[in-house]
Nucleic acid binder design. Structure first.
Lengths: 191, 191
DNA sequence: CTTCCCCAATTGAACGTTCATTCGGTTTGC
DNA sequence: GCAAACCGAATGAACGTTCAATTGGGGAAG
């Protein structure tokens, strides 16, 4: 990503934070502007419309998630260790970025979802697919479609992170390890 | 639930359908009214406000999901069979009610989430907890907190149903059975 | 059985507010 | 001195909500 203007970044950050607190509706452009310390008109210097802002913000957020997957899967370690690292890496990322997580979930459950590319072109899922496919190829994982493995893996991460972020439940380190282990027990080949 | 007026049901159904298509914002009261075949004012005869309508609709929707869990877990069968039935029952319910599913997801990721009771008082999760706790007690499932088992189970159902509903991926019967089996392999005790 | 009345249900135009967006002007960096 | 960045009051459309007026069904009175 070419480096962004400070203002643009501020607008992104403010939008995520405010959407988390007030929801997608309930976050007027004027509020974003004030929070980001810019004038309302300035937002329109960087973004065509509110819709465009939201969509670009989604891409921006997704790129950060993609970076996490890239970082964690490029390690040169046994597959199993890599899998656990990836799980924990993504979980930590979501937990430490609750604004992003919430925005993400709102987006994919909104009509904007239609503007997303099909799964095959989705960089995030492509990376996840590829990684899990590798696990199947190396006979570490059961002979199951990588898309299924990807859904199970990611959904476990998301649901735990969401529940923790909402404060409705919390999980200690031991429990997190248990969760990863349960998931692994489910998808791994038993030698 | 005491029986509802036809109009109230029509308003509920229309709201769910329109929220699915247009999102939470993007669904004005006037649109709900027209779609439900009533005047705008009529909605305010049944509901205090748009917010109230949304919240009551969530309760209404959740009761339907609760009914599915009750139906599937009350069967007098071995735990494992019951577990598979519950998974499939909930999945089928969500798949056949995509409007409800989408509305549900929008709601829990919005600021309205704060109006929900804590998890312990949540009838849906209480039932799920109790059922999985039974599995632990009967030594069918690993000695893990039922809340963890509940999250993993429900998140797998939701993510598969959501992906299928959005048309981004589809799953045939064999794949659905595979998914349940993977999940079971993860959480079941190996005798 | 008819008439009358009551009140809950229903209507939809009107109101006031909020919001996304615009635009003429100002500042800043080069 | 000239773009590009930035400002923020003004604009007009859209929306949630209100309310005065209308309807309709059912029970009481005759």
């Amino acid at each position: 990503m070419e480096q962004m203007s400070d203002k643009k970044t501020a607008i992104f950050k403010s939008t995520m934070e405010l959407v988390r607190e007030n929801g997608f509706h309930g976050t007027p452009m004027s509020m974003i502007a004030k929070h980001a310390g810019v004038a309302a008109g300035t937002i329109y210097h960087y973004f065509e419309s509110k819709e465009q802002l939201i969509c670009e913000l989604f891409c921006y957020a997704q790129q950060q998630a993609v970076a996490v997957v890239e970082r964690e899967t490029s390690v040169n370690e046994p597959f199993k260790a890599c899998f656990f690292k990836l799980w924990m890496g993504l979980y930590t990322f979501y937990r430490d970025n609750p604004d992003l997580l919430r925005f993400f979930e709102q987006f994919v459950n909104s009509p904007y979802q239609a503007t997303m590319p099909p799964l095959e072109e989705d960089r995030f899922y492509s990376l996840l697919f590829a990684f899990l496919e590798q696990g199947v190829r190396e006979r570490e994982l059961k002979e199951v479609s990588p898309k299924i493995l990807a859904m199970l893996t990611h959904s476990s991460i998301l649901s735990i992170a969401k529940t923790a972020a909402s404060g409705r439940l919390s999980f200690n380190k031991k429990e997190l390890q248990q969760i990863q282990q349960l998931l692994w027990d489910g998808i791994a080949r038993n030698h």
